[in-house]
């Protein structure tokens, strides 16, 4: 396949960026989107140009690094996949593909398509943890957990922190991410000790980082590669209202 890429190039956080067009020839439809970028970058390096910077790590859909906003959708046109799992057979020969970084005030651009998502880390450190006492680990079976709660917590814990929810949201809201991180702990007995403090602190941190407020468009859920449900946002809302009303 022969493709034209319109790629956002930006030197660093403070410089102005712009689109540059690249022709990429001989793309196999079995390549992943990232492998197609590898082909382009190899050529750019050989020609003495600077390669397009983009984040990636596992290349198997579990690390959440491969942030690319492809033809108006985070991670491209396919549902339930990350960019590394998007294959070129989803495109046609001769296509022009526009590739942009995640755009959000809270995710400053590092270079080209790579953005700084440490705002997510700060939301987690504000309360997305459980305290573990020292001493011997207790028998895991001593903590009864209902199957439905375990399943729901597990589904919430599938969030890989990729930020596609923020990228897709017209308000650049991080509520799907934050709610998944609140839910995975609020549903389990291990998460009860810090439950009220967690909801309050994580929501406050989310606001401080400069993410927008949810308007329930559902774009996040539709674009999330891990199928994180909007039910988590409703749960976060309950957790938060309950926390502010009852905390001392």
């Amino acid at each position: 396949m022969n493709l034209t890429l319109k790629v956002w190039r930006q030197k660093n956080a403070n410089s102005e960026g712009n689109f540059q067009d690249y022709k990429v020839a001989g793309v196999s439809e079995d390549m992943s989107f990232l492998e197609m970028f590898d082909v382009l970058n190899e050529r750019l390096i050989n020609e003495g140009d600077s390669p397009v910077a983009f984040d990636h790590d596992c290349r198997e859909g579990i690390c959440g690094m491969c942030s690319m906003y492809i033809n108006g959708e985070p991670h491209g046109p396919n549902k339930g996949v990350t960019t590394c799992q998007l294959h070129m057979r989803s495109f046609k020969d001769g296509d022009t593909i526009t590739v942009e970084p995640w755009r959000a005030q809270a995710f400053p651009i590092v270079k080209d398509l790579a953005v700084n998502r440490s705002a997510f880390d700060r939301i987690i450190s504000a309360g997305g943890y459980v305290s573990v006492n020292t001493g011997n680990a207790q028998d895991a079976n001593a903590l009864p957990i209902g199957k439905d709660h375990a399943d729901e917590a597990f589904a919430a814990a599938a969030c890989i922190g990729c930020g596609a929810c923020v990228a897709a949201c017209k308000n650049a809201s991080a509520m799907l991410f934050t709610s998944a991180k609140i839910s995975q702990l609020a549903l389990l007995p291990q998460g009860q000790a810090e439950r009220t403090m967690r909801a309050e602190k994580m929501v406050a941190q989310m606001d401080t980082e400069g993410f927008g407020a949810c308007t329930n468009t559902g774009a996040c859920e539709a674009e999330c590669p891990k199928g994180i449900s909007l039910e988590n946002i409703a749960r976060m809302n309950r957790e938060y209202y309950g926390a502010v009303l009852s905390s001392k």
Binding site: K6, F19, Y69, N71, G72, E73, P77, T98, E100, R103, A168, K170, T217, G218, A219, A222, E223
Partner: peptide, 9 residues
């Protein structure tokens, strides 16, 4: 964004 495909989601 330069391209937004809102109707997809």
């Amino acid at each position: 964004y330069a391209v937004v495909k809102g109707e997809a989601n």
